[in-house]
Design a protein around this nucleic acid. Sequence first.
DNA 1: TAGTGGTCTAGACCACACC
DNA 2: GTGTGGTCTAGACCACTAG
Lengths: 258, 258
Amino acid sequence: MLATPGNQPLYRQIAADLWNRIRTGTLRAGEQMPNETALSEEFSVNRLTVRQAVAELQRVGAVEIRRGIGTFVTEPPDLIEVVSMLPVRAQQSDSTHDALSARGPSAVSGEPLRSVIEQVESFGLASGVDAAVAARHLDSGPADIYRLDTTMIRDGRPWILNSYWLPSDFAAAAEHLPQYGLVVHALKLGLGFDLHYRWRAFSASAADFDEAARLKVAAGSPLLVRDGVTAVADGRAAFFVRRRMRGDTAKFVLRYAE
Amino acid sequence: MLATPGNQPLYRQIAADLWNRIRTGTLRAGEQMPNETALSEEFSVNRLTVRQAVAELQRVGAVEIRRGIGTFVTEPPDLIEVVSMLPVRAQQSDSTHDALSARGPSAVSGEPLRSVIEQVESFGLASGVDAAVAARHLDSGPADIYRLDTTMIRDGRPWILNSYWLPSDFAAAAEHLPQYGLVVHALKLGLGFDLHYRWRAFSASAADFDEAARLKVAAGSPLLVRDGVTAVADGRAAFFVRRRMRGDTAKFVLRYAE
DNA sequence: TAGTGGTCTAGACCACACC
DNA sequence: GTGTGGTCTAGACCACTAG
């Protein structure tokens, strides 16, 4: 039974009720919730109404639904912190990659990450609106820009979706990728470029259908987005990159020197 | 009628179909979609099935549903870029606030923001798990930490939710807030502190019910989260802050000096 | 008042995971 | 097979917004 009659729709009251059980510990992390039929009887509502409530709890990340098994209170995800130090006089490369290869001052919380590999999804001449935007970031014409899409695989699972836009003389990174594992390594070790940040930007977005499928999350899930332009020693832009990853498992930390 | 029979559920095929119409420009930004009854007749499915499809499009941000009016293809939101320069030898304050007051090298894309004010939601001694976490960030015991919750209002609308954890000698900022408008101004101008970054971190999360209500978005919407610790000149931590804002309207840019 | 989306029901059947 | 969540229907009524 529902304690609060309220003006809220039924499914929202039910969601609030269940949410309270989770907050107060009546339902604990990892614990299985009563099944939908049981809940619909408990609250004396149709099963669809319960489903609406549970779906909201899923979207806010309070519960995890495993088809054919049951619904469980979410356990805190293992967060991966990518740390970089600031100010950086000469940022030699890319903090994500550095953190992943776990050398230098950058590090990832907990044990260092192993077996992170970047996999080519597609490669070719860029076109359309994206190419024009990239061209602006890269201080070049849109005609000669290549687009490289990759997926970073961590512990065998898709972790970060990357889209690179590269002027033609940097595009060879795509060929060298299989050998070096990561795009930045291909540019540094394979092609001998000295890379440093020009700018980085953080935002958040809802996963579209494609991103959702590739990251194996629900469409609309929060993604952390990191855009940026990396340049070579003489100041020329080497690439514009957009990285997208699950918001609940990634965190970028910037430490400032005292 | 649906072109692709596919193994996908009906509502997903319908969502994909509508999504294609939007991508290809058959349905243009700002345009009103056919209403649910019309769509259910067009696809020969129940209205609920159409609703499920449209709900997904709403979650990925492709359409905007206005109750009592109709469903419209989303127009690109006006993004607010908060820019800060790096490296910063002595980061004098907080880039968010600086950008908002639009002075110095920090700036916000487009015209400078006016009438941004920070409003107290609650204030008191911190407790529970949060207090313990904050204490760790602040290098102090959890007993003497105050928590200040505020909402930043921009153009009359809620924009950023802030939670500050402050050691007792910085907590007076709460009293001075009404006079100075922003917490950081209260600390700098009101109390004379010289503030600088210790660290900042970016992540993304789904709006919980409280956040959703306060920001007037749907529960589960993507939020950009920026955590950080700001210290005073002698290195002591002044506060730990967590800011949450709509992911689709905020972007933090870090520019690196050449 | 007319048109739109929002909520809810009762019941059916399907798909998946585990035993 | 049994139990779980996933999809879909037909139909009803409610709540909001605009003219």
